[in-house]
């Protein structure tokens, strides 16, 4: 198969980017999208088709759809045309011979470009650091079977926990909102008895951090769910909203009570 690629090139965070056009030929339909970029880079490096030689920078690692490192905006869609698939698991058989394919980085204020197709997603780590965990320390915990958890709850928690933190939800959202990402983590713990203890504090802290870091507000258009490579449901956002509201009401109640005694 032959393709024309329009790829975003940007020297660094401060430089102005632009599209450049490349051609790749004789690509096997079984080749993955990232392997196709490998082939292009191989040509840039060994055939020196343009000087100075500067292979395309893109993030990737496990290439089996689980590390969340790959982050390509392909033909206007995060991770490309195939539903529920990361760019590394997308294969060229999903395109038509002769297609022109546009490849861009994630575009969001909170994810600045580092080089070409690489972006800085450390904002996600910062949100998790605000409370995307249960504050248990190592050791001194009860037997794993001490607290039975209904299978339905455990399964729903697992559905939410399947998030790979790639940022496709942010890239898909016209407001660049991180609601689905935050909701997935909040939901996982809200559904488990171990996570309930800190549930109120967690949801408030994570939402506040998300807002602070420049992610937009939820558009309610569900673009995030549609583009999520792990099919994380927007029902998690509904759960987050309930948790957030509950936490706020409780917080207000407590303030009032404290005031009453003071």
């Amino acid at each position: 198969m032959n393709f024309t690629l329009k790829i975003w090139r940007q020297e660094n965070a401060k430089a102005k980017g632009r599209f450049k056009t490349y051609k790749v030929e004789n690509i096997s339909p079984d080749c993955s999208f990232l392997e196709m970029l490998d082939i292009l880079n191989q040509q840039l490096i060994e055939d020196k088709i343009e000087l100075p030689v500067d292979p395309i920078a893109f993030d990737h690692d496990c290439r089996e759809g689980i590390c969340g490192m790959c982050s390509l905006y392909i033909n206007g869609r995060p991770h490309g045309p195939e539903q529920g698939t990361t760019a590394c698991q997308l294969h060229m058989r999903k395109f038509k011979d002769g297609d022109t394919i546009t490849v861009e980085p994630w575009r969001a204020k909170a994810f600045p470009v580092i080089k070409d197709l690489m972006v800085d997603r450390s904002a996600f780590d910062k949100i998790i650091q605000e409370g995307g965990y249960i504050s248990v320390t190592t050791g001194g915990v009860p037997d794993a079977n001490a607290i039975p958890i209904p299978k339905e709850d455990a399964d729903l928690a697992m559905d939410a926990a399947a998030c790979i933190g790639c940022g496709a939800c942010v890239a898909a959202c016209k407001n660049a909102s991180a609601m689905l990402f935050v909701a997935a983590k909040v939901s996982q713990f809200a559904l488990l008895p171990q996570g309930r203890v800190e549930a109120e504090k967690r949801v408030q802290a994570m939402v506040a951090k998300m807002d602070e870091l420049g992610f937009g507000s939820c558009t309610n258009t569900y673009a995030c769910e549609a583009e999520c490579p792990k099919n994380i449901s927007v029902e998690n956002i509904a759960r987050l909203n309930r948790e957030y509201l509950k936490a706020k009401i409780k917080h207000a109640d407590r303030k009032r009570e404290a005031g009453g005694f003071g």
Binding site: V136, T138, A144, K151
Partner: peptide
């Protein structure tokens, strides 16, 4: 090995469970 499972459950790792809610 047993401590690891205890620790992970306490951290909220959603291990597979049976219908009685046990691992």
């Amino acid at each position: 090995s047993s401590n690891i499972i205890d620790q992970c459950v306490a951290q909220g790792v959603p291990f597979a469970r049976d219908y009685a809610g046990y691992l």
